[in-house]
Amino acid sequence: MQPILTISDLTKTYAGGLQALKNVSLEIERGEIFALLGPNGAGKTTLINVVCGLVNRTSGTVLVDGHDIVDDYRVTRALIGLVPQELPTETFETVWNTANFSRGLFGKSADPAHIEKILRSLSLWDRKDERIMNLSGGMKRRVLIAKALSHEPQLLFLDEPTAGVDVKLRQDMWNVVSELRESGVTVILTTHYIEEAEKMADRVGVINHGEIILVQEKTRLMRELGKKQLVLHMHEPLTEVPPEVMDYGLDISDDGSELTYTYDTQREHTGITALLGALQSAGIKFYDLNTSQTSLEEIFVDLVKRPQ
């Protein structure tokens, strides 16, 4: 099936000379949730803005559902919904009016039932007649999502959707995104909360200095780049790694109470059985053990720290 979004050799150089995007190529499959991660100034928002028509590209092609974003802008933009990073809202308008305005703007005839459904799903229905200026920051964020969904987009961009919102709202947002995925909407989200990407995304892309440095299925990424660690809590504190298990590359904690073994989950033999056997043979006792896995955040930090 044709990808919903195909970006090929996209570059963007601003008038001041800043090259925000460098030959970016990316394909987004239909119905997936794609998390675009990157530090501040990496090019995430520029990439989104080019696709949405807010920033002119310097070179390259961007196809939405097979249509060029410039030549067929009417088709492509009608397919896209955008929730921007900031909270730009029509201060003096009511929630109901602004959602209906957005639907009309994107070329759809009025459909009060659809708007009602969206407002209810975002817990905005009770406040539909309220002016936006009277809403909290979190509620304004919901209004922006309602506006973006008002014209039933196939591709939804969420640029930092949960920045500055409380835990409850964040959970609500995750629920909304899950429902969108079930209804077949493709979601591309940028976020600083790696936990969010880890929880929701099917695939993860990492952008840094305007270049896509990695695109990978989340589970595979965590499996391949992630490491597991076995921590042994020693019965008696050690002064150094025992010579009998020197070959395992163990780390010892400062107080000598823990030994940490880092192993590769991809290997056929992790070495855990042999390590435990060697410790037993040497008479070194431990009273507890636990394993932990590298989080997506650690993988991300590691990736963006690598020299370009």
């Binding site: 807010l54 921007p84 900031e86 201060t91 703007l105 994107f106």
Partner: peptide
């Protein structure tokens, strides 16, 4: 000024 122009500019309008 408020930033809401983004919506008009990203809409399928000439």
């Amino acid at each position: 000024f408020t930033g809401t122009i983004f919506e008009v500019l990203s809409a399928p309008v000439s």
